[in-house]
Design a protein around this nucleic acid. Structure first.
Lengths: 202, 202
DNA sequence: ACCTTTCTAGAGTACTCACTCTAGAGTCAA
DNA sequence: TTGACTCTAGAGTGAGTACTCTAGAAAGGT
């Protein structure tokens, strides 16, 4: 047969099959949810057989966990950049945060993901990754808000935690809206600065 | 056996089995998503056999559609109240809207629902109901915003549509946050007025 | 009483899908 | 070469689940 002539995806060489599977799973899950993304579909998208799939991952849920953990690492880097900016200038940190949010909104894989993951079985690694991600955002945003309060650019009639909470509410709402109506992304992107500014200023 | 001695749910008399099934389906779907809510589970929750279930609904998806259409009717009423308030006083309409949003947030069934429905198969009635619901909100909020602009209480540097869009972004984000962390509901509720005010004022 | 229609139960069915198993190919070391 | 190991394919399996089928109970009309 043509068993050696498989598609091999485009990323076959760097990272090997395992990476191919993670990437394919991300795409499939983002586009129609965790439950409806079958292992067979992920296998086909990755150019891999079910044998290979289960050689690398014990369960379908484990691939989701791998995807989320990979994303968490990316998020960690992004928020590290935001955090370091806060100390001299909270305004700059907020700008970087807005850019981060908008880049997530622009990435349609990312946009679909949030909704797709809501109904996932109770898996420890999955819930840990999700929780770590939201906790990370909340914590860094809280630091940024606190820095802004010290610098006088952020309102003091709310605690820094509360300001951070509202910022993530806005970010989540924005992602959800863009996910189901990509058209609104541009307008919202342009106005995000104004909205955030109104939200946080003293 | 005790076939006549079934639980009969509490609402058995008014509306009959059909209503029981819809109510049970709403609970089950809200608590662990559409896919994971099995027909068997819904049947048990409704105190009904699978035969009865499929006598009233051709498919599992059809029950979801029925649930959504029922909710749509409720939403329609709520937004009608909001719309009529807008003409004399847009501020009052916004207050009513905030109350509506908070009451949805307080209802934990409602909160779980948004996430649960994201990954649903492409069904015409379902998508129609969802679209009608968001369209309804957007349209009424746009009218309210426009009224506020005429009355001078709402900013004019955004179109009424855009103000409405941001309001629903905030509402969606708030619901999502409350769904995964009920604790934050109280704080957010208290501050919603301030946030909305900052968002829309000239 | 008798027929018709609607409703109900629950065993049965057909199918999907996550996961297993086995056989073998590729690779490297000695 | 041989042996040990990893990787890969794909047919197969078992569990779960949406939906069907049939027999019969209520309900209602005449």
């Amino acid at each position: 047969m043509e068993s050696t002539e498989r598609p091999r995806a485009t990323t076959a060489r760097r990272g090997g099959r395992r990476q191919d599977i993670i990437a394919a799973a991300r795409r499939c899950i983002a586009s129609h949810g965790f439950q409806r993304a079958t292992t067979a579909e992920i296998c086909e998208a990755a150019g891999v057989s079910s044998g290979t799939f289960f050689h690398y991952f014990p369960t379908k849920t484990a691939v989701l966990a791998a995807v989320l953990e990979e994303d968490l690492e990316t998020t960690r880097l992004a928020f590290e950049r935001i955090r370091v900016a806060a100390d001299p200038d909270a305004g700059l940190a907020l700008t970087r945060w807005r850019e981060h949010v908008l880049s997530e909104a622009a990435d349609d894989e990312m946009a679909g993901f949030v909704a797709a993951v809501g109904t996932v079985p109770d898996d420890d690694r999955v819930t840990a990754a999700l929780q770590a991600e939201s906790e990370l955002a909340r914590q860094v945003l809280t630091e940024v808000a606190a820095a802004g309060q010290r610098q006088g650019t952020v309102r003091q009639d709310m605690t820094a935690e509360q300001v951070a909470l509202w910022l993530s509410v806005v970010a989540d709402g924005l992602l959800a809206h863009v996910a189901e109506e990509a058209a609104s992304a541009d307008v919202l992107g342009l106005q995000l600065q104004d909205v955030v500014d109104r939200l946080v200023r003293p």
